[in-house]
Computed example of a mutant assay.
Amino acid sequence: MLSFRLAYIFCYNLLQFCGHSWILANTIARFLMFGKDALADTFYSVGFVMSLCQLLSILELFHIADGIEKARLLPRFFQVVEKNVLLMVVIVLEELQSKPVVCVQLFLWNVLDLLRYPHELLCVLDQPSVAMLWSRYSLWIPVYIISAASEGATVYRAADSAPPAASHVISVPAVLRFYLLVLPLGASVTVWQLLKERRHHLDKWNKRKKRK
């Protein structure tokens, strides 16, 4: 019998998949129509939906903690924090929103999520696909590393764009530069945990195929 938890996690993954599909399709269509000129206002076109999807991704931490989703909490925590912090920085610094690096960052984030959510949907339906499994746990890792490097470039540009603060206020550029130092550590931990997760799931798949 279909349980509420199963229906909820299916609807959540479907909603995220549809949201990121729309963002990626919109971004590619605008680039094909307007070329490089589309880079300047990509954030204005998809920023609201992207922010909504990333805000909803905070729920995934509760999914893992509650056992609805079988995944490691630490790497997902770093991923959620990275994206939401960087989005807040981009939203606050309006002059950064028209930079090409922001468009590249949004593109990479959506590629990552479209590698993950279809796999999660198939797992909820108990219809796993080896192609989606491989994409989720093999192709996802190098794309994530590129995305983390792009995040570093975005934060660096943000640190240069941020206005200097008064002496009694926390310096935004200083906070961003500190975040720039922490980012490689968080990304390294995430990649290490994901490699372990990849080995576990691929071994599990191979054992399942042997039993059949």
Rank of each mutant, 00 (worst) to 15 (best):
K99S: 10
L133K: 02
V104H: 08
S135W: 06
S147E: 13
Y137G: 03
N110K: 00
L106V: 07
V85Q: 02
F31K: 07
W109I: 12
I146M: 10
V85W: 10
A158G: 01
R72L: 12
L61S: 13
L139T: 07
Y156I: 05
I141P: 01
R157I: 04
L61C: 15
L73A: 11
V49K: 05
G35L: 14
S150P: 12
D126N: 13
K36L: 14
S147L: 15
L121H: 00
L122P: 02
V102S: 04
E82G: 07
E120Y: 14
C53W: 03
S57R: 15
I141C: 04
I68C: 08
A162F: 10
L121F: 04
F43G: 05
G67H: 05
L56K: 07
L122I: 03
L106A: 07
V111Y: 03
A158I: 03
V80N: 03
V143Q: 05
R76T: 11
Q105C: 11
I28D: 02
S98E: 06
L74V: 02
D41Y: 00
F78R: 06
P118F: 07
L125Q: 06
M132G: 10
N84R: 10
S51F: 11
V46S: 01
S98D: 11
A162Q: 04
S98V: 09
Q105T: 03
L108V: 05
V102R: 00
T154D: 02
L61Q: 10
V49W: 01
E151V: 14
M88R: 07
S45W: 07
N84V: 02
K99P: 02
W134Y: 15
K99F: 04
E94S: 15
L93P: 00
A158C: 08
I64K: 06
E94V: 13
G67I: 06
M50I: 05
S135Y: 14
S51C: 13
A158Q: 02
C123Q: 08
L59C: 14
S147F: 10
L39R: 03
K70G: 01
I68H: 11
D126C: 10
A29E: 13
M88Q: 14
R72D: 12
V85G: 05
I28P: 02
G152H: 03
K36S: 14
D41N: 09
